[in-house]
Structures are given as structure tokens and as C-alpha cells.
Amino acid sequence: MQSLIFSAVLDAIAALKSASGNLPNNLLRQVQAIHGNVTMADLPKELQDAIAASTRAAFAGLLKEGYSIAPRDAGPARPQMRQGEVVARGVDRPSRPPARGPRSDGPRGPRGDRPGGGRPGGGAPRGPRGPRGPRQG
């Protein structure tokens, strides 16, 4: 992969040099004209041809190494399932039991609430927690 990119850059530099007629001032102007928003049509014809040739060579090299190449709008290809492989459909994490809401069963107090004022433990309010005394009984 690195060698493909390296050779493409070297081909582009050689094309710029030949497009400038090996004149340093023309080469400098052409290099300075290249920026982030440059289009293919703005580049010299020699550089356009070098980019097209190196792109074809890069794709051919990637295909030769076993990479698959598809158009952008084709979407990702689904790999074939291997025997015994399990695929979770539509779930990215293990499923959890549904969250429990307030219970609808049990007695209600005179104001419609549960005994214990709706506290999580129910029952009568408790005092401060501390050591218990000896058991009686």
C-alpha cells in the first residue's frame, strides 16, 4: 500500500517537472497553484494524465493483493457467514430485561398512595440507623 502511494507521488512530481518544461520558475508557479480546493481540471494536462495512470496502477495493485473495490454508492458488501457463526440482527449489545415501572398491585392508602408513603422499601418510616439493642423475646 505504501509503495503504491509513494510511486503515485513520484509520478506526479515527475509530471509537474515535465509540464513546466524543466524551468524552475514555471515549476514553482505550478506547485503554488495546487491547494486544498483545486480541481482536476485546474491541473496541467501532464499531471492529470500522471494521476489517472497512477490511480489505475494503484487499483490494479490493490486488486492483485486481494482487496475488493466497489463504487461508493454500492454500500458495504456483507461478508459470507461461516458455518456455525451466529449473527445478532438489529442489536449491538446483549439484550436486557425490560425496565420495571411502578407496581400496580398491592393495597393503597386513603390518599391513593401505597403504605409507607411510596418509599422504595415501603412500611413505616425508620429512624436513624445505628447499633441495635439486645433482642428481647
Rank of each mutant, 00 (worst) to 15 (best):
M1I: 06
Q2L: 09
S3E: 12
I5Q: 05
I5N: 00
F6I: 15
F6S: 14
A8M: 02
V9C: 12
A12N: 08
I13W: 00
I13P: 00
A15S: 02
L16R: 02
L16M: 09
L16D: 01
S18W: 00
S20Q: 06
S20A: 15
S20H: 04
S20K: 06
N22C: 06
N22T: 08
N22P: 00
L23M: 03
P24D: 14
P24A: 15
N26M: 05
L27R: 09
L27E: 08
L28S: 12
L28W: 03
R29F: 11
Q30H: 08
Q32N: 15
A33H: 03
A33Q: 12
I34G: 10
H35Y: 00
H35A: 12
H35D: 12
H35V: 05
N37D: 13
N37Y: 08
M40L: 14
D42H: 11
D42N: 15
L43M: 09
P44E: 08
P44R: 05
P44W: 02
K45Y: 13
E46L: 06
E46I: 04
Q48N: 07
D49F: 01
D49M: 06
A50F: 00
A52H: 11
A53P: 02
A53H: 03
S54L: 05
S54M: 05
R56Y: 02
A58F: 01
A60R: 06
G61W: 04
G61S: 05
L62K: 04
L62D: 03
L63M: 10
K64A: 15
K64R: 14
E65A: 14
Y67V: 10
S68A: 13
I69P: 02
I69T: 08
I69N: 06
I69R: 07
A70C: 03
A70D: 06
A74D: 07
A74L: 03
P76E: 10
A77C: 07
P79E: 13
P79R: 14
Q80E: 14
M81H: 11
R82A: 15
R82H: 10
Q83V: 06
G84R: 04
G84S: 07
E85N: 01
V86C: 11
V86M: 14
V86P: 02
V86D: 15
V87L: 14
V87C: 07
R89C: 07
G90L: 08
R93T: 15
S95Y: 02
S95G: 02
S95T: 11
P97L: 13
P98E: 10
P98V: 05
A99N: 09
R100P: 07
G101P: 01
P102T: 01
D105F: 05
D105G: 10
P107K: 07
R108H: 08
P110L: 15
R111V: 06
R111W: 05
R111P: 01
G112Y: 04
R114A: 11
R114T: 10
G116R: 01
G117Q: 08
G117P: 01
G117C: 07
G118Q: 09
P120V: 06
P120C: 10
G121N: 08
G121W: 02
G121T: 07
G122T: 00
G122Q: 03
G123Q: 03
G123L: 03
A124Y: 03
A124L: 15
P125Y: 02
R126E: 13
R129T: 09
G130M: 10
G130S: 05
P131S: 11
P131K: 10
R132P: 02
R132H: 08
G133L: 04
P134K: 14
Q136H: 13
Q136D: 11
G137D: 07
